[in-house]
């Protein structure tokens, strides 16, 4: 049976992991390789590295990070942040990434999904979506946007771009369906309302999106308690759950999460 994946997300700035692990004695808590090795031993099923500098000048720094991590850690590796075109994707894959996560690039040029899926294969194209619940005052109707995915009166969540700073006028559920049809291999869905709140994943958002797509869904934003992971999988129908600070600060370990899920009859990969 296919197991549910637990994925820690590491933010990389200038080749260093920021918000590094603060609870164990690592020689260097900002060293991507050391952290990757640590999470691999902890039972992580994949790793996501997010380049938060994301400027093209730093592209080769990120390449080197990916190269050194992939030489030592033999689990799947996803890289996101500032990936704009096929050339950026190629460089990351050649450096040793298994998947790339695309976000703003898809919003400014939706064709990049099918072009890159066609060229590199859907399996390595993750589409990241930042979702924010609509309040009456925040609605941005934009008639430049295709009706296929523009927000309408029934929209509950809007897609945001540029690290969650810009509303786009795009409906999250319709957009998810669209990028899946265009050849994305996976969707990484972040609830901006829940991100950093530790109040649980947005289950309704996950459910509405997972009902519309037939590709894997990664839940992100809101993990704070161990039962949140179970809720995202059981009620939100997520195939994988991603978290950052809860793992970095040692609120609980990945193995604790896995043990908890297993006790609740959710299939996981046992590594302990």
């Amino acid at each position: 049976m296919l197991t549910k994946r637990i994925i820690p997300c590491l933010d990389v700035d200038q080749g260093r992991v920021v918000k590094g692990i603060s609870f164990v004695n690592l020689r260097d808590a900002g060293d991507p390789v050391e952290l990757a090795r640590f999470y691999d031993q902890e039972g992580a099923d994949e790793l996501v590295f997010l380049d938060i500098t994301a400027s093209s000048d730093n592209r080769n720094i990120m390449e080197n990070v990916v190269k050194s991590v992939s030489e030592e850690v033999f689990i799947p590796l996803t890289v996101g942040g500032g990936i704009r075109n096929k050339e950026d994707i190629r460089l990351m894959l050649e450096s040793g990434a298994d998947k790339v996560s695309l976000n703003s690039a898809v919003l400014s040029n939706p064709d990049i999904i099918y072009q890159s899926a066609d060229f590199f294969g859907s399996q390595c194209i993750v589409c990241a979506i930042d979702a924010k619940r609509i309040s009456d005052t925040s609605v941005t109707f934009n008639d430049q946007i295709s009706e296929e995915y523009s927000i309408d009166s029934s929209t509950e969540w809007e897609v945001y771009s540029h690290g969650g700073r810009k509303p786009t006028g795009i409906d999250v559920v319709k957009w998810s369906k669209y990028v899946a049809q265009m050849g994305a291999g996976e969707i990484l869905l972040t609830s901006m309302d829940r991100d950093g709140q530790e109040s649980g994943y947005d289950i309704q958002l996950l459910k509405d999106v997972s009902n519309q797509i037939s590709i894997p869904l990664i839940a992100s934003g809101g993990a704070g308690k161990i039962e949140h992971f179970k809720q995202a999988i059981e009620h939100g129908k997520a195939d994988a759950v991603l978290a950052a600070s809860t793992f970095h600060f040692g609120t609980f370990s990945i193995n604790q999460v896995k043990q908890y899920l297993q006790d609740h009859h959710i299939p996981i990969r046992k590594t302990y």
Binding site: M1, R5, Q123, G185, S214, I215, P216, D239
Partner: peptide, 13 residues
Amino acid sequence: SPGLKIPHMGWNQ
């Protein structure tokens, strides 16, 4: 078959 999530992606026995 349709009805399964495709790709089959992740850890399996």
